[in-house]
Amino acid sequence: MATQAQKTHPYHLSEPSALPLFGSIAVLVTAVGAVVFMHTGFYLGLVAGFVLLILMFIAWWRLVISEANNGVDHTEVVKTGLRIGMLLFIASEVMFFFAFFWGWFHSSLPILNNVAGMWPNNDIEPMGASGIPMVNTLILLTSSVTVTVAHHALVEGDRKTATNWTGITAVLGVIFLIIQAYEYWHLVNHQFGLKDGIYPSTFYLATGFHGFHVLVGTTFLIVCYFRLRAGHFTPSAHIGFEAAAWYWHFVDVVWLFLYINVYWWGSSAFGHLKPLVQ
């Protein structure tokens, strides 16, 4: 590889790395472990796979962070590339949720599915829009504001404020997750479990995957918090933070869709669909 002095282009060519191969083996272990777990209940393979995967992620991100900090690799062009990459990744995530929203509408709208004469199925009492989901909506909306505050502070060079507000955002994320866990616990015990038919299926997978994305986003924010404290970010160079913020907004928007369709419309409008069944 060209050394810095010889480097005649603005791109970042990585050195050969064992991480991709290691990560792929981790994926293989996870996949095989998952199948074995689902069929036999033996879970150690799956756990081992997850552990390897997490190790891979930690090592990989450490590597990226060190490249970001060495002052050489992340040129303006490279940073643009990272931004494009992050946006594309989010676009693909949107399409992933698209599938679950499709499932929600397919099974709830008689127009799309002549099976669903009744919704929610089996006289399940749907999850309403007030109470817990409302609180969580407020939390996520607030967190969207706090992360923006942090971003502005960062751009203006106010590292301290940026650090604090990033921390607050991450805490809000954690609170959201705790509340969602409580909501699930409550639902499972009082209203419906995962196996109770199509309404719970769509409900739990859509909100569950959202919850998982909140977890990922929160982790990302926590990393940013520590990187802020360590002084990794400058007003002009903070791709990692930017990506975390974008991701957080994306998670937020998905939630708004979930809230409006699944919680709100799903609990009110569909009440009127019930009489269609005769």
Partner: peptide
């Protein structure tokens, strides 16, 4: 079933 296929 013809008029309105339903779960029942």
């Amino acid at each position: 079933a013809e008029t309105q296929p339903s779960l029942d």
